[in-house]
């Protein structure tokens, strides 16, 4: 497996994603500048967190026009796996690869902390190493992570089992108390209906080694790597 970490001007978790795939999971990994237009040699495309274009205008709204995004969209249609984390998730919704939008947090503040995340769908290439309904502890760090979509989109997400992660209590209850940003039905991460594009606000790459926590994030990243071994 070869991973491309896309670097937009203002990306700042590109380095963290690179370390996670390259050093922790020992996979061939490259930084790819946003002006690149050919991603033929990659099996996985990572849209990292950060503040692409300073989040000016709207998070992810300018990055979607970067030259590389046309190629990301092309490749996703061919089934190449794409993961968008935080700002990367915002770019995925802005470019229409995932439905809905990420809006200002309910309490209108940036929030950086560990949250509990319930794995709602482990039948994906991104989560198959997690246990059924496992509750992971993974950090969030964002101002605009309040997921919103129309009632119609929501019922489609639910019908197709596209809601992959929800904010929960440590014992797996989905309630308002466990919802850090006001996301509709506690959505923290969703997948497209063909199962190869995942967007999530929490940062698995920040909790992928024991020194920094319980390394729950590694389960998600390893699932991706492992899915290539199985093929």
């Amino acid at each position: 497996m070869r991973a491309a970490i896309i670097v937009f001007p203002g990306s700042n978790c590109d380095h963290d994603a690179y370390i996670a795939f390259k050093k922790i999971l020992d996979q061939p990994t490259d930084f790819v500048w946003h002006k690149e237009t050919n991603l033929d040699s990659y099996d996985l495309i990572v849209l990292p967190g950060g503040f692409s274009y300073g989040d000016y205008l709207r998070c992810g709204a300018i990055a979607r026009f970067s030259p590389v995004m046309k190629e990301v969209i092309e490749k996703s249609k061919l089934g190449v796996k794409v993961i968008g984390i935080c700002n990367g998730f915002q770019i995925l919704t802005e470019s229409g690869l995932l439905p809905g939008a990420l809006t200002m947090n309910k309490y209108r503040q940036f929030i950086c902390k560990d949250v509990n995340l319930k794995v709602e769908n482990r039948q994906t290439v991104f989560t198959h190493l997690c246990n059924e309904k496992e509750v992971l502890t993974i950090p969030i760090a964002h101002s605009e992570g309040n997921y919103y979509c129309s009632a119609e989109e929501l019922s489609q997400l639910e019908a197709n089992n596209q809601i992959v992660f929800r904010y929960s209590t440590p014992d797996g209850n989905i309630n308002t108390e466990a919802n850090p940003n006001g996301s509709i039905v506690n959505i923290a991460g969703i997948i497209n209906n063909t199962g190869n594009v995942l967007g999530m606000m929490p940062h698995p790459e920040r909790n992928a080694e024991h020194l920094l926590g319980n390394s729950d994030g590694k389960k998600i990243l390893s699932s991706i790597v492992d899915s290539f071994r199985r093929n």
């Binding site: 700042n12 902390k113 940062h203």
Partner: peptide, 14 residues
């Protein structure tokens, strides 16, 4: 205060 700061980016904060 500190929850308004990203205190983890760059994955070095032990």
């Amino acid at each position: 205060v500190y929850e308004q700061y990203d205190y983890m980016v760059r994955t070095n904060s032990v």
